[in-house]
Design a protein around this nucleic acid. Structure first.
Length: 866
RNA sequence: GCGGGUGUGGCGGAAUUGGUAGACGCGCUGGAUUCAAAAUCCAGUUCCUCUGGAGUGUCGGUUCGAGUCCGACCACCCGUACCA
């Protein structure tokens, strides 16, 4: 018998699908309901890795399955092509980011096409295509008109040696990754998207996303972090101006022992100009860096300004004003009051600097006892309780006290109850070349436009990236800045000398609307001069099933949800809910050990043999297991598996064992199981040359034949449920069982043909090429039957799913001691009698007295005996 | 630090959602086939002091019954706003 030959079979069926326009969305029957399947598009790093294969294999199973279930499916693919790695490659290898990127796209497209995903390649684009980023610039201008764009100062990581802005991942232990210089902070004018405008909507609307994982909704909700509280001022004494604070705990105001300002607070910036010590403290704070993680984990440091403010409720008392490194300028007003007894951070701070710790909340459990609460607190008490030592708030609960404190603050005219978001506006300016230029021109006349900032007129778009730029390691920084002529233009408004914005847009913007471009953009190969066709995009959106890595759970998904709202409110998209993704599945990451050589450089796993780097001979240090990423080089190329076993085995393998939402540490062991399976399927199909239709129904089957049919139909249920629930590994296990059952079954009769036809249709979304080959063999040369990828999903016959006889376990005191084979609908009394008559049960019970017999029909019998 | 998640045989994992723990696959062991090997096929495979007992990261709780629910902890992973 012949063997399955992937190299011959794969191109044959890929050509057949193309000829049948099987995955061309425009060729689908328009009367069918739509289904938009989308996987997060890849960054073209140059190689696909196992994480990609896993992601796209899942998406393809869903897309092909939905197609078999009668939907017209849109399943596009493109490239998230702007970003830092291209510039790093330009510096390291002297290549141009554009050439590097498009070469990488070509390099990745080969293996992706080889894998036979059912993709509509007619809609492909890269975000670095001028046609795409032109439209992104148009959207930027539309958002601007809509009031969703503004400019303000913001901090960046500045490498003083390389004279360039660093990304957070390029700052290692506070030092520049290339130069090793201590990273400084620098304030630059930057553009922002007003995502906080939609703060409430983005938070509330999460509840409607029923087909999103609960964890992602929770993460987004926490990220947006809506909190109610009060904003009010502490009146300054002597030279101290009034200080505006925000708090969620105005109830603890009587326990306040200090006011703390961010080192970046305008007041501190002003004071530090004439105060060298304060300036030094600010520099100390700046060393920590800009990331939330670094700030939160840094040792809490303070600086007493010597200023004092009045307590709002006790005008004769005053509080010291400190600078604290844990107060963020970006949240609230950049100033807080500290209540050490009831906030852990304040507690740590007060303990360190010997500030008073005054308790104002008595825990409920202490009621009656220890009225004075005099003994020292070991830590802050943040739970519920009753207010004490708080004048008019005494005796109130926390919630009531919050309300009463706000009322008092309002009555005193010091402030109001307000809502704050943890969410900050989205800074989109990047001091880099390889991104979409921000379409702004700065006029030399600052009375022109907004303080000199003039939007590029729509007719002048695109603002195109110049190709003639130079990258070199000796001269890092943004080449657009250095370009001889590019930035010099006349002001589009008044004609005076002006210069272009040299910052480009955050690449998260690129991935915030690409799904709309797929849906309403290039479908017919007719690029329209707008971001996307409104009707088409509105018809396909929302994406019915979006699949991608859980690492995008907050930022990418939140930014996309912001963009669709912006597009909606600009009238570009008809999407009332504003929600781009109706169903979301977050897959776990494919992880791998990381390796470094003696120079401390990351090393690819394929460059290692017996603990040494093959290319240099250096000794390798093994690091942590982390998600596969280009920057850490811990990627495994799937090409070897595809070459060795074929596309279908590779696809089957990545879905076969692990539950899709779980992280998997990459290992090739187990791929042989997928390979054996492909061989078994081939063998059982080619063991029969009678060409009975794979759509046979063996209605007359009896005995073993009937059992096989019953099993096959039960497996339909299991496989279908597995796909619907994204538990492909359980579908795979069920398919294995059916395959084994068919193998053991001897005859080439109608029951076998029916079961085999069911099997092939169910394997088709997973192993599409092998399935077509098997399907073609079964149906024979003269059959009019369609391709298996265009054949409906098998339906389970309900009559075959029920069993008359079932096995029930018998437990004694919760431990299994026997089992019974009984009719499905046997009554409880009979069951009890049978269980108590079982010799092994009698022996187990022995002398003990039977206290109770629990019978759960169809499930279990438990005898309680003592 | 904070937010979110995960933890079951030698390994990946299954378990009808509170009811037979270990389906299915890998690996391993033995056998068949072969001059031999590969491939393939068949059987076995949680552990132990084995007519019994223990067992789903640890400790405790609820229940007739807990991998599943509750509480405390441990380890690892993701995110933490300029990696994408």
């Amino acid at each position: 018998m012949s063997r399955y030959n992937a190299a011959e079979t794969e191109p044959k069926w890929q050509a057949a699908w193309k000829a049948a326009r099987a995955f061309d969305a425009n060729a689908q029957d328009s009367t069918k309901p739509k289904f938009y399947a989308l996987e997060m598009f890849p960054y073209p790093s140059g190689k696909i890795h196992m994480g990609h294969v896993r992601n796209y294999a899942m998406g393809d199973v869903v897309a092909r399955y939905k197609s078999a279930r009668g939907y017209r499916v849109l399943h596009p693919m493109g490239w998230d092509a702007f970003g830092m790695p291209a510039e790093n490659a330009a510096m390291e290898k002297g290549v141009h980011p554009k050439g590097w990127t498009y070469d990488n796209i070509e390099a990745m497209k080969g293996p992706m096409k080889r894998l036979g995903f059912g993709l509509d390649w007619s809609r492909e684009f890269a975000t670095c295509d001028v046609a795409y980023y032109k439209q992104q610039q148009a959207i930027f201008l539309a958002f601007m008109k809509q009031g969703l764009v503004y400019r303000k100062k913001a901090k960046v990581n500045w490498d003083p040696v390389d004279m360039t802005v660093l990304a957070n991942e390029q700052v290692i232990d506070g030092k520049g990754w290339r130069s090793g210089a201590l990273v400084e902070q620098k304030e630059l004018d930057q553009w922002f998207f007003k995502i906080t405008h939609y703060g409430d909507e983005l938070s509330n609307s999460l509840d409607s996303l029923e087909r999103w994982p609960e964890k992602v909704r929770t993460m987004q909700k926490n990220w947006i972090g809506r909190s109610e509280g009060a904003q009010f001022k502490f009146n300054g004494q002597d030279d101290c101006p009034d200080i505006e604070v925000f708090t969620t705990r105005p109830d603890t105001l009587f326990g306040a022992s200090f006011v703390a300002l961010s080192a970046d607070h305008p007041l501190i910036k002003t004071l530090a100009k004439d105060n060298a010590k304060m300036q030094a403290f600010r520099a100390e704070c700046a060393k920590i860096g800009t990331t939330e993680e670094a700030i939160a984990t840094a040792e809490k440091l303070g600086f007493d300004t010597g200023l004092r403010v009045a307590h709002p409720f006790k005008p004769d008392e005053s509080l010291p004003v400190w600078i604290a490194n844990f107060v963020l300028m970006g949240y609230g007003t950049g100033a807080i009051f500290g209540c050490p007894a009831h906030d852990q951070r304040d507690f740590d701070f007060a303990s360190k600097y010997d500030l008073p710790i005054k308790r104002v909340i008595r825990p409920h459990i202490n009621e009656g006892a220890d009225e004075s609460l005099t003994e020292a607190l070991p830590e802050a008490y943040m739970g519920e309780g009753t207010l004490i030592n708080s004048a008019f708030l005494d005796g109130l609960s926390k919630e009531a006290a919050i309300r009463a404190a706000i009322a008092k603050i309002e009555e005193l005219g010091l402030g109001t109850g307000t809502v704050q978001y943890r969410l900050r506006d989205w800074g989109v300016s990047r001091q880099r070349y390889w991104g979409a230029p921000i379409p702004i021109i700065y006029c030399s006349d600052t009375s022109c436009g907004d303080n000199g900032a003039v939007p590029v007129p729509e007719a002048d778009l695109p603002v195109q990236l110049p190709d003639d730029v130079v990258f070199d390691a000796d001269n890092p920084g943004n080449p657009l800045e250095r370009h001889a002529t590019w930035k010099d233009v006349p002001c589009p408004s008044c004609g005076k000398p002006a210069r272009r914005e040299t910052d480009t847009l955050d690449t998260f913007a690129d991935s915030s609307w690409y799904f709309a471009r797929f849906a309403g953009g290039t479908g017919n190969g007719e690029p329209s001069d707008k971001p996307f066709d409104k009707t088409e995009a509105s018809n396909w959106l929302p994406v019915d099933q979006y699949i991608g890595g859980v690492e995008h759970a907050v930022l990418h998904l939140l930014y996309a949800r912001f963009f669709t709202r912006g597009l909606r409110d600009c009238g570009l998209l008809d999407l009332p809910s504003g929600e781009p993704f109706d169903g979301l599945f977050t897959q776990g990451m494919v992880t791998h050990e990381t390796y470094k050589n003696e120079d401390g450089a990351w090393v690819e796993p394929s460059d290692i043999d017996e603990g040494k780097q093959i290319s240099t001979g250096q000794i390798i240090t093994t690091g942590a297991v982390e998600k596969m990423s280009k920057s850490k080089k811990n990627v495994v190329d799937p090409n070897e598996i595809i070459q060795g076993y074929g596309a279908d085995v590779a696809r089957w393998f990545v879905l076969s064992d692990s539950p899709p939402e779980r992280d998997v540490e990459w290992t090739e062991s187990g791929v042989i199981g997928a390979w054996r399976f492909a061989g078994k399927v081939w063998d059982i199909v080619y063991a029969d040359d009678t060409h009975q239709s794979p759509l046979s129904v063996a209605a007359q089957a009896e005995g073993e034949a009937l059992n096989l049919r019953k099993f096959a139909h039960k497996v339909i249920e299991r496989v279908t449920a597995g796909i619907e629930a994204f538990r492909f590994n359980t579908s795979v296990a069920a398919i294995y069982e059916l395959t084994n059952a068919i193998r053991k079954y001897g005859k080439n009769d109608a029951a076998r043909a029916e079961s085999l036809g069911i099997l092939i249709r169910m394997i088709a979304p997973f192993m599409p090429h092998l399935s077509e080959e098997c399907w073609a063999h079964m149906k024979g040369d003269n059959s009019k039957l369609a391709l298996v990828c265009q054949t409906p999903w098998p339906a389970a016959d309900p009559a075959l799913l029920t069993e008359d006889e079932i096995t029930l376990p018998i437990q004694v005191n919760g431990k299994k001691r026997g089992e019974l084979s009984v009719a499905k609908d046997i009554d409880k009394d009979a069951l009890e009698k049978m269980a108590l008559a079982d010799p092994r049960i009698i022996a187990t019970i022995g002398e003990a007295t039977i206290r109770k017999v629990i019978i759960v029909p169809g499930r279990i019998i438990n005898i309680v005996a003592k």
